[in-house]
Structures are given as structure tokens and as C-alpha cells.
Design a protein around this nucleic acid. Structure first.
Ligand SMILES: [Zn+2]
Ligand SMILES: [Zn+2]
Ligand SMILES: [Zn+2]
Ligand SMILES: [Zn+2]
Lengths: 135, 135
DNA sequence: TACGCTTTGTTATAATATAACATATTAAAA
DNA sequence: TTTTAATATGTTATATTATAACAAAGCGTA
């Protein structure tokens, strides 16, 4: 039941499951509400699980929304390079998995020659559906 | 005193000034504390000024820190394309102004051919100083 | 067993942000 | 000039997001 390195604790599994089932990013307190029937009663229990799942790359935090999505990208075992597209209208979030982009960003050097070990990129625009409906 | 489109209201000027003077990103409530002597007494006054300054591109929000920095980039009149480097150790934040990067991101098309009108990119690593001190 | 480590449960509180409403200021319309 | 609409401000209260602090339980292993 305890965690070796690959395995999730009970609370972590519960939280991961609800995030994976969701079609939209979930907020911490909406997760808390949903899992109260399963015995998770207080914010720290949710936030601990979230923190751990993020470290494992199982989920990502959408910083501009304070919300959490399941990783759709099998190789995000360490979540140090994330990119998302976010619809300004319906708030749909999609994880971008684009080798060219990730290579470009992972190798990016700034003016001073500095390299980075982690990045997070959030794109905003209208998703296909919303673009259609507006036009 | 009121705002045409280029001019800032009193509260907006006060808030902008303190952010511009700061060497680090400032949190909303630390701004509130600093400006209480100038007559700004409550959170909404600060948040309104921040919102407006962001829309004008005078400041940017560092999403991963819930903190605000002055724009160092004269042409960010609309802040729809932002990139920052953030030191994991000393939390120093620098706005990246790299034409190649911004061109690359502004023109980025995802798999579905979707284009975006806005992005925010945050790089994390160790700044020069911190890297030296650690080695 | 006894120890250290991780996870869990729990209460309280800190930190971040907005709702709602009253008032004031200004610019333009009538 | 009066009226109106739009913007900015002040103010109180509250919502939302996140963490501190500490006690207890579970597990691996020496
Ligand atoms: Zn991922
Ligand atoms: Zn949409
Ligand atoms: Zn800028
Ligand atoms: Zn540093």
C-alpha cells in the first residue's frame, strides 16, 4: 500500500482517478468536494496528493487557471517540460505534444547563454469548436 | 486625471511606480501594504490597478508565483506574448526578449493547424549568480 | 521489538482574489 | 446647461486557493 517510487498511495490514486476521468481541468476544492464520499476530508490531503502526482508527471498544473489536468503524454514521467493550449472561450485545455516545439524549448539559450531545466508554456486562443461557433 | 487610453489613473500610477522600483516580482498584498500610506486601503483597489496595468502591457503576472513585474520590453504594449526566466534558487525573474523565440512561438501551429493569439512561457533554472555559488 | 520514514488525519489559518454596492469624477449627448 | 453614460474609486464582506502545525497510523528493516 505504501509508496515505493512508482506506486501511488490510496489518496493519490483517488485524486488521480478523478482528474483522469474529467474532461476539463479540475480545481483543488472541486476535487476535494468530489472525493469526500471516499474519505478525503480536508484540503491538505488533496494538495499533498496533487503535489506528489505533479512530481511524478501524472498530472500538470495549469498555472493560469489554478487547475489540474491528467498528463496525456506517456513520457512526461518528469514534468519538466509542459505546453498547453487553452481556449479563451470554453476553457478547454489540451496538452501539446510536439517534438519540434519541445526540442526547441529544451535547447533554448538566452542572450547570456543560460540554459534551463524546466519550462511551462501556455497558449491561448479559440479552439476549433468555438472558432466555428463565432464565425 | 482620468484615463484616456494611454494615461494612468492615480491608483494605477502608484501601483506601477512601486512595481517598477522593485527588483523582484511583487505580490499583490505586499503592494497593498506598501501603498497604504498613499491612501490605497483595500485589495480591490490594488487588483483593479494590476488588471488595468496588465491589459496595457505595463506589467506582467508571473503565473507560477502569483507575482507581478514591470515590463522591461518597450514594445509589450499589448501583453500577449510573454516569456520569463525564473531562478529556482533566488527567485529572480527576467523578462526574455528574444525575437527568434517570440517569432517562433507567435507562428506556432499545433497538429490541428490551430494558431494562438497569446502565450506565456516560463523557464526555470539557476541564474548565473546562483549557479556559480553552487559549483 | 524498536527505529526511521512516509503517509494520513485533523484543525486552524494564511495568502490570493473577487462580489457587491455606494459614491465620485469625467466626457460627451441632448 | 442639464442629463446621461462610462469610468474610477472607496468600502465591507466574502470567496477561493494553499499551507502550517501537530498527532497518529502504517510499513520496511535492522
Ligand atoms: Zn504531460
Ligand atoms: Zn473552446
Ligand atoms: Zn513585457
Ligand atoms: Zn538565482
Amino acid at each position: 500500500m505504501n509508496q515505493k517510487i512508482d506506486f501511488l498511495s490510496k489518496n493519490q490514486q483517488i485524486v488521480l482517478e478523478i482528474i483522469e476521468k474529467a474532461k476539463e481541468p479540475l480545481k483543488a476544492y472541486s476535487i476535494l468536494f468530489s472525493v469526500q464520499k471516499k474519505g478525503i476530508k480536508a484540503p491538505p490531503q488533496v494538495y499533498r496528493a496533487l503535489d506528489r502526482l505533479i512530481k511524478l508527471g501524472k498530472i500538470h498544473k495549469i498555472e493560469s487557471k489554478n487547475a489540474f489536468v491528467a498528463c496525456k503524454n506517456d513520457n512526461c514521467t518528469i514534468s519538466n517540460a509542459t505546453a498547453f493550449s487553452i481556449c479563451d472561450n470554453c476553457e478547454m485545455v489540451t496538452e501539446i505534444s510536439n517534438p519540434k516545439l519541445s526540442k526547441y524549448l529544451a535547447n533554448f539559450e538566452d542572450e547570456t547563454g543560460m540554459r534551463y531545466n524546466k519550462y511551462n508554456l501556455e497558449f491561448f486562443g479559440l479552439c476549433r469548436k468555438c472558432k466555428k461557433n463565432k464565425s
